[in-house]
């Protein structure tokens, strides 16, 4: 009963926040609506029993991402540059139809090749190694991350390393 009420409230917060993000004219207000929406998602996780995910949602999104977004909004000009009489056309979109098509095709091909290679690893898991009963979802996530899902764990760590190297390359002072 209580959990149901909390679930409905979180769902309303998520939806209301998401609507606010789209409907708001002020981009700072939109960011705050997004904060509300992310809190709602954390509430959804918490009411569905994924408490670790809820906490991580708060730490990563509410703590880090929102403040970074606010910073990014602050550092990238104001209204005047974004809005001209052609609307948002003043800022060139990222690529054209051609680049989008090439990008999606190549990602499909690479994805299917990679999946073909790792399919044997994924299918080899016959469920014989039974996992013990866990007392909390944190232990369960930790154990599963380094047993069954170690591939995705490693891939995401490589991705994060790439992001770190990219950030270092971008922010490095250039030699004249």
């Amino acid at each position: 009963m209580f959990i149901d009420i909390m679930f409905i409230l979180s769902a309303l917060l998520t939806l209301g926040g998401a609507f606010g993000v789209v409907a708001s004219k002020n981009i700072m207000h939109a960011c705050i609506y997004l904060l509300g929406s992310l809190f709602g998602v954390a509430g959804l996780y918490a009411t569905l029993g994924a408490d670790f995910l809820a906490a991580m949602q708060l730490v990563v999104y509410a703590g880090g991402i929102i403040i970074l977004m606010l910073f990014a909004i602050m550092l990238t000009g104001g209204h005047k540059e974004a809005v001209n009489k052609f609307g948002l056309d003043k800022i060139p979109s990222m690529g054209s139809v051609k680049t989008f098509l090439i990008g999606s095709f190549s990602s499909l091909i690479i994805g299917s090749v990679v999946l073909k290679i790792i399919a044997s690893i994924i299918n080899s898991h016959d469920g014989s190694g039974k996992l013990p009963e866990f007392s909390s979802s944190v232990e369960k996530i930790g154990t599963l991350l380094v047993t069954d899902h170690v591939l995705s764990f490693e891939i995401s760590s490589v991705l994060l390393l790439g992001a770190l190297v990219g950030a270092a390359v971008i922010s490095r002072p250039r030699k004249q």
Binding site: D51, F52, A55, A62
Partner: peptide, 12 residues
């Protein structure tokens, strides 16, 4: 059972 993470999250 995620007490300390919760503190980090909400204090942000």
């Amino acid at each position: 059972n995620i007490g300390i993470l919760y503190v980090l999250g909400v204090s942000s």
